[in-house]
Amino acid sequence: MFYPNSPQTSPQLTQIPYGQQYAMMQRQIQQPYHPFATTEPQARLYPYHYQGPIQQEQGGFITQQSTAASPQYVQMRVTPVDQSIMSGYPNQTANGSSSSSFNYNIHPQQQQQQQQQQQQLRHHAMPVGSVPLQDDRYRKQLIVNYLAPDVTSTDLHELFSRFGELDGARIIYDKQTNMSKGYGFVYFCHAEDAKEAVERMSGYEFHGKWLKVGYSTNPLNIVPSNSSPYVHAGSRGAAG
């Protein structure tokens, strides 16, 4: 039997160049792979992502010199942007860049009308829970959420009447099932009393439920100042 490094198959040491006398086997001759043993700084910083320098080929596509990437890492192929796409944008300079302001050559009167329309939209648009300043009635009506099913309009009136005089209180019921929808409205005579009720009743436990109280901004629920107070009856038909 002959071994790869046996004296019968191995040459004389004098015939082997210096430095390879003890590297006779194939696994010894093959050098191990060192990912950080390279002179390129990109490979030292990113050993798993770097795959060699990027070269520009004919046709405008950018390719990489090395083989496919590892399945664990996804390499994105980048193509140059066609400058003709950006030619339609206004205020574009000769080098292809555009300024931040756009001039669509709008007539001054049209621009003024658009600004007025935007101001009107901001004036009428009102986020949930906010209180408008032009109508004091919005500051007097509250919406009470997360009410228990057994709470009546009379219970709601008695709960909030300790903060001040009320114009009314009612629970909203479903017309088909005649069941409470879980929320109601309270109408105060003074805005200061309503503000105190919002601050003190939010998070209050009532009939096993934690109440959420806020201003009601729905104009359909506003009680006119010259109208008669609501009837605080315990029956659902009268309260709904």
Results as ranks from 00 to 15, higher is better:
F2P: 04
F2I: 12
Y3K: 08
Y3V: 09
P4I: 10
N5I: 13
S6C: 10
S10E: 08
P11Q: 09
Q12M: 15
L13R: 06
I16F: 12
P17M: 02
Y18Q: 15
G19P: 06
Q20T: 13
Q21E: 01
M24W: 00
M25D: 00
Q26M: 14
I29L: 04
H34F: 15
H34K: 03
P35I: 08
F36Y: 03
T38K: 00
T38H: 05
E40H: 00
A43G: 04
A43C: 08
R44H: 15
L45S: 03
L45I: 09
P47V: 15
P47D: 06
Y50F: 02
Q51E: 11
G52H: 00
P53E: 06
I54P: 00
Q55M: 14
Q55R: 12
Q58C: 02
F61D: 01
F61L: 06
T63K: 11
T63G: 08
A69Y: 02
A69T: 09
S70Y: 14
P71L: 11
P71G: 05
Q72Y: 15
Q75P: 09
R77S: 14
T79S: 05
V81S: 03
D82P: 02
D82G: 06
S84E: 12
I85H: 01
I85P: 03
M86W: 10
S87R: 11
Y89C: 08
P90H: 02
Q92F: 14
Q92H: 09
T93W: 15
A94E: 13
A94K: 13
N95D: 02
G96E: 12
G96Y: 15
S97H: 02
S97Y: 04
S97W: 08
S99K: 01
S101D: 13
F102Q: 13
N103T: 12
N105G: 14
I106G: 10
I106K: 07
H107D: 02
P108F: 06
Q109P: 15
Q109G: 09
Q111T: 06
Q113T: 04
Q114Y: 09
Q117A: 03
R122A: 03
R122W: 00
H123P: 09
H123I: 05
H123Q: 01
A125E: 13
P127R: 11
P127Q: 14
P127C: 15
V128L: 06
G129C: 12
S130Y: 09
V131K: 09
P132F: 15
D135F: 09
D136C: 00
R137I: 09
R137D: 00
Y138M: 03
K140S: 00
K140W: 02
Q141H: 06
Q141F: 02
L142M: 00
I143W: 02
I143T: 02
V144K: 00
A148G: 09
P149A: 15
P149D: 14
D150H: 12
L156D: 06
H157G: 04
L159G: 04
L159I: 14
F160W: 15
R162P: 12
R162E: 06
E165M: 03
E165P: 10
L166A: 04
D167E: 04
A169R: 02
R170V: 01
Y173S: 01
Y173W: 04
D174K: 09
D174E: 08
D174F: 06
K175H: 04
K175Y: 05
T177I: 04
T177W: 11
T177L: 04
N178H: 05
N178Y: 12
Y183P: 07
Y183W: 01
G184Y: 10
F185C: 02
Y187I: 01
Y187A: 06
H190N: 10
A191K: 10
A191F: 04
D193L: 02
D193V: 08
A194G: 06
A194L: 12
K195Y: 08
V198H: 08
E199N: 08
M201P: 10
M201T: 05
E205D: 10
F206S: 04
H207A: 04
G208K: 13
K209Q: 01
K209F: 01
W210F: 02
L211T: 08
L211Y: 15
L211W: 03
V213A: 04
G214D: 03
G214K: 05
G214Y: 01
Y215C: 01
Y215K: 06
Y215V: 02
S216N: 00
T217Q: 06
T217C: 07
T217N: 10
N218M: 02
V223M: 01
P224E: 06
N226H: 03
N226D: 01
S227H: 14
S227F: 04
P229Y: 13
A233K: 14
G234L: 08
S235Y: 11
R236P: 05
R236Y: 00
R236M: 13
R236W: 11
G237Q: 01
A239I: 11
G240N: 02
G240K: 11
